[in-house]
Amino acid sequence: MTTVPVREHRPARPTRFVAARFAASGELGGLTLAGAIGLAATAVGAACPVLGAPVVAVVGGALLSPLARRWRGVVQPGLDIARVRLLRLSVVLLGAQLSLGQVAHAGVASLPVMLTTLAACLAGAALLGRGLRVGRDLRVLIGVGTAICGASAIAATSPTIRARDPDVTYAVSTIFLFNVAAVLVFPPLGHALGLSPNGFGLFAGTAVNDMSSVVATAGSYGPAAAQQAVVVKLVRTLMIIPIVLTLGALVRRREAPAGPAAATRRRPGRGGLVVARRAARLVPGFLVGFVLVAAANSAGLLPAASQEPLRRGAMVLIAVALAAIGLATDVAALRRTGGRPLLLGLLLWVTVSVTSLAVARVV
């Protein structure tokens, strides 16, 4: 009787090799897809500053999300890298545009306006968001996006609060809508109110979100208004730091374990050490990098010729990361969110605009 050998197992090493090749191709495939959309969005944003690359990227990614879901096994690893690691790297590079000297040059008048609009917007996001029954993460993203610097603030905040991709997409799209409205409405409003170029620059720098829209809005009012608006907007961007740290503390407090383990951490004699360790854990690594780059810029350690390439690099990375977020978005779930977040964005936009004008008149 002749026996036929049956091959039941494949060698382990080729299997691991194929798995590694598949994982590598998944990272490459997702990064290539997000990168292509991000670069295309950057080109569109350069040609049409009113739109801006971040919005084009996230909307383009969302439109192609059914394709990404069909190829999920191939592209998902790369999309995860783009929407987390590249997003954090882009925030670090944004620090190259800031310096401590710019805070002083913005003038004493700008700080009360910025702080008041920030407080009004965040309080409005909490109160109005609850009243409209908007989800906690989504109202936080819309609030910080409206209060600070649009897509960049959303990019910095989303990993800290572990926001879902649909919430990030909806928040960025909402911010975009009112950026366009600001470009169209604010210059005629400024002329009707008789605002000076510096006054309008202060208004645009505190009430418009993304930098491209700030430049587009204030630029139509004149070069002096544009210069003032850019400086105010850069100072306003610094508010990302305390906001993200506060949100990180709240998230960690909400997720902290209770019971005997917590009691153990409060043993006498260890209070200072516990506080120091908690403080260290509250600071995300990418935010530390952001502060270090800004400090290096303040100290003159960054060559002037490097700032523009770093800015462009940061914006490209933000576009690629937001394209990945759009690709990972379930558009059907986004539609089910309804119009309440959009209404929240409208109310916050009006709140910030009215508060900015009112406080500027007083100070």
Rank of each mutant, 00 (worst) to 15 (best):
L301Q: 02
P303C: 12
N297P: 01
V274Y: 13
L310V: 08
A294L: 06
P303R: 11
V291N: 03
A279H: 02
R281G: 00
R277A: 15
A262Q: 11
A263T: 04
L273R: 15
L282P: 02
G289Y: 05
L273T: 14
G259L: 01
P284K: 05
R278W: 04
A296I: 11
A276L: 07
L282K: 09
F290A: 13
R281V: 02
R265D: 10
A258M: 07
A299P: 08
E308W: 07
G289T: 09
A305Q: 15
P309L: 09
P260M: 04
G285K: 08
L282R: 02
G300F: 02
L273N: 09
P260N: 08
Q307D: 02
Q307M: 10
A295P: 02
G300K: 11
V274P: 00
G269N: 04
A294V: 07
P268A: 13
R278N: 06
A276G: 00
A262F: 05
V283T: 03
A279L: 12
T264V: 15
S306V: 12
G289E: 09
G259H: 03
V293H: 02
S306T: 12
L273D: 15
R265S: 10
R277F: 13
P309N: 08
S298L: 05
A263C: 07
F290L: 14
Q307K: 14
G285F: 09
Q307C: 07
F286C: 05
G289I: 01
A262D: 11
P309Q: 11
